[in-house]
């Protein structure tokens, strides 16, 4: 029974959402919007679940003494945001937004910028013309990089046009094939889920 009810719920909601796609009736439109709202609300609760798990996992680690100072800093950072939001609100000039703009945003973009160095070292170490495929990959990357720089070299315009052609035709068509594959894959997986053939989302037996 524990597994039957979720399967029935899954089938019903799947069928409703599938059928409403073909209807412009007000009830169908309203139901569609309502279920999309349910999605966001349930998602918000799953976030609460995640945060509580994060706190629990960190507390266990702290009590065992693993990386204690770092975990405490993380927890303090996490707790400080809701507290600031509760006291001063989340308007543009609030301490909450100050934390976001001067602590979170600069650090997040710097972590992303760190990858520039790893990309550079990967270019040197791994980007070798070992086979025909590797050479094509290398060639495409070099053409794109050259064309996307403002360099005073001859035939820059032709190079730029050629790079655009590569992006718009051969590269795009490979990506399109991947997209079609994803589309067909999602379609069959969705049907399997609705019909109850695919049940991995139910988790283990309990």
């Amino acid at each position: 029974m524990n597994r039957q009810i979720p399967l029935i719920v899954c089938f019903s909601f799947g069928l409703i959402m599938f059928l409403q796609y073909f209807s412009n009736h007000t009830i169908a439109r309203t139901m569609n919007l309502a279920i999309l709202d349910y999605w966001q609300i349930i998602f918000a609760f799953t976030l609460v679940l995640g945060v509580v798990s994060y706190i629990k996992a960190n507390m266990t680690k702290i009590s065992r003494g693993i990386d204690r100072p770092y975990l405490i800093v993380g927890l303090l950072g996490m707790i400080s945001m809701p507290i600031m939001a509760l006291i001063w609100g989340i308007k543009a000039d609030s301490p909450f937004m100050w934390m976001f703009e001067n602590v979170q945003a600069p650090m997040a973009s710097t972590v992303f910028a760190l990858l520039a160095f790893f990309v550079a070292s990967a270019s040197f170490r791994g980007f070798r013309a070992r086979s025909m495929q590797a050479s094509i990959l290398l060639g495409a990357a070099l053409i794109i990089l050259l064309s996307r720089s403002n360099l005073p070299i001859p035939y820059t315009e032709h190079l730029s046009e050629f790079a655009d052609w590569i992006r718009n035709y051969p590269s795009m068509t490979a990506r399109r094939a991947i997209l079609i594959g994803i589309g067909l894959g999602s379609l069959t997986t969705s049907m399997r889920v609705i019909l109850g053939i695919e049940r991995t989302w139910l988790g283990g037996e309990k």
């Binding site: 040197f124 980007f127 070798r128």
Partner: peptide
């Protein structure tokens, strides 16, 4: 930023070419 960007691209191209020279 374009001048810096172009220089960075050239640097990556240089690294790729250098890596391949060593490889061959």
């Amino acid at each position: 930023g374009m001048l810096a960007q172009s220089a960075a691209h050239l640097y990556v191209i240089f690294l790729i070419v250098l890596g391949n020279i060593f490889y061959f």
